[in-house]
């Protein structure tokens, strides 16, 4: 049995009177890839934001290696170093070039040597095929390239857990692939990841376990094969149906 890295117990999250996450419990084992799917507005992104303590929660606990992440706000920067997060809109820093984007946190947060950080940044960039773009600015890169840089920027912190929040949702179809390939590569390396995505084929390929979320609750939780070919609930079935089309036959 792999050790439990993340454990969420009875999480409650609401904005004013609007409840987003209802009594949600979840765990992620070390080395596991958890894919979260569900209709928009079901609370997927909010869940990731709670795990990274970007949102205050109204109840329950989120434990990373047994430590409550909301226990002490002073510890948050330290804790967030262990959790990498990649956003839908990349969020590279527009005033810094690619290299400086990547080595900012290693240098000022982890106090690493500039040369050593640069070296690792170059290795990571090479792994995603962007070693020749280190001196460019984010605006010179395509969406897919920016997202790969964003992934490198979180990897260099050596996080134990990676969160991906619909990282391909803002990309043109032909760029989706290059980003998903990076994620697949990370999965092969045995990284622990929580991936929120609308790419069902990809979800099926990368997931160790799929969680289907609707209206702030876990409706279904199972192995990818089981989920995608034999969903247990009517709600999940209807959701998956929205991704398939019947051939249009024009009469006339």
């Amino acid at each position: 049995m792999a050790a439990e890295l993340l454990k969420i117990e009875h999480l409650q999250k609401s904005y004013d009177s609007h409840v987003v996450l209802k009594n949600l419990s979840l765990f992620v084992d070390e080395g596991e890839v958890l894919v979260v799917v569900g209709p928009s507005g079901c609370g997927k992104s909010t869940l990731l934001r709670c795990i990274n303590a970007l949102e205050p929660v109204q109840g329950g606990r989120i434990l990373l290696r047994g430590r409550d992440i909301h226990e002490n706000e002073k510890n948050l920067p330290k804790l967030r170093q262990q959790i990498g997060m990649v956003f839908q809109s990349y969020e590279l820093f527009p005033h810094k070039n690619i290299m400086d984007n990547i080595i900012l946190a290693p240098i000022i947060v982890q106090k690493r040597k500039r040369e050593e950080a640069r070296q690792e940044a170059m290795e990571l960039l090479a792994r995603v095929g962007l070693e020749n773009r280190a001196n460019d600015f984010p605006r010179q890169l395509s969406g897919g390239q920016k997202q790969r840089v964003a992934i490198v920027r979180s990897l260099i912190m050596h996080p134990e857990l990676l969160l991906f929040d619909e990282v391909t949702a803002a990309l043109d179809p032909e760029m989706v692939r290059e980003v998903l390939d990076v994620l697949l590569d990370l999965a092969r390396q045995g990284r622990t990841m929580i991936i929120v995505t609308h790419e069902m084929q990809f979800a099926r390929a990368v997931a160790d376990r799929v969680v289907f979320l609707d209206k702030g609750k876990i409706v279904e939780e199972s192995a990818p094969e089981a989920f995608f070919s034999r969903p247990q609930t009517e709600r999940a079935r209807r959701f998956l149906d929205t991704f398939s089309f019947e051939t249009v036959r024009k009469s006339g």
Binding site: P77, Q81, F87, S89, E91, F93, H95, L104, V109, Q110
Partner: peptide
């Protein structure tokens, strides 16, 4: 400056002051 920039800095482990100084203020 978009607040996600701030969150992006936080998620890399930057403190409030570091995020302000290195990420938000220059923009």
């Amino acid at each position: 400056v978009d607040s996600v920039q701030k969150e992006s800095a936080f998620s890399l482990g930057l403190s409030k002051n570091q995020a302000l100084l290195h990420v938000i203020l220059p923009q």
